[in-house]
Amino acid sequence: MTAGVDLGQPQAQAIRSDEDVVRVRQLVRTVSVAVKLSLVDQTKVVTAASELARNTLVYGGGGMVEVATVDNGRRRGVRIVFADSGPGIVDLDLALTDGYTTGGGLGLGLSGARRLVDEFDIQTAVGEGTRITVTKWSR
């Protein structure tokens, strides 16, 4: 029983506009339904995806998202990767603090999204971009 990404059909979606954020939400919803997440978990992961996709658009200047199903032998889940080649995040701890914002939002995007998923990984380098991977497992 090995953990791994089902590379059968990871779905990719570019984020370049408002409408793309809506498409990301719909894509994540479809995949979450497919792996049988509960309604509340679906809502949580779609909301998290919405926040992160908007961040990619607003702060990262657009980028790519990839949605895949994962299976660790016991549970299935959905894994989403947001990648941009924007300015990166200077102070990661600060960016993950509730209420901190540089873009005039509520400052709940990153910190809130992290609370809504089971696994949250962020890699960022100033001037090179940001890559955020989140995973939500079925119960």
């Binding site: 309604l39 509340v40 809502t43 949580k44 910190s111 809130g112 609370r115 809504l116």
Partner: peptide, 14 residues
């Protein structure tokens, strides 16, 4: 507001 939405908003901190 749907229950799932309300629960998510609470978790989000909104």
């Amino acid at each position: 507001m749907r229950p799932a939405v309300a629960i998510t908003l609470v978790e989000l901190g909104l």
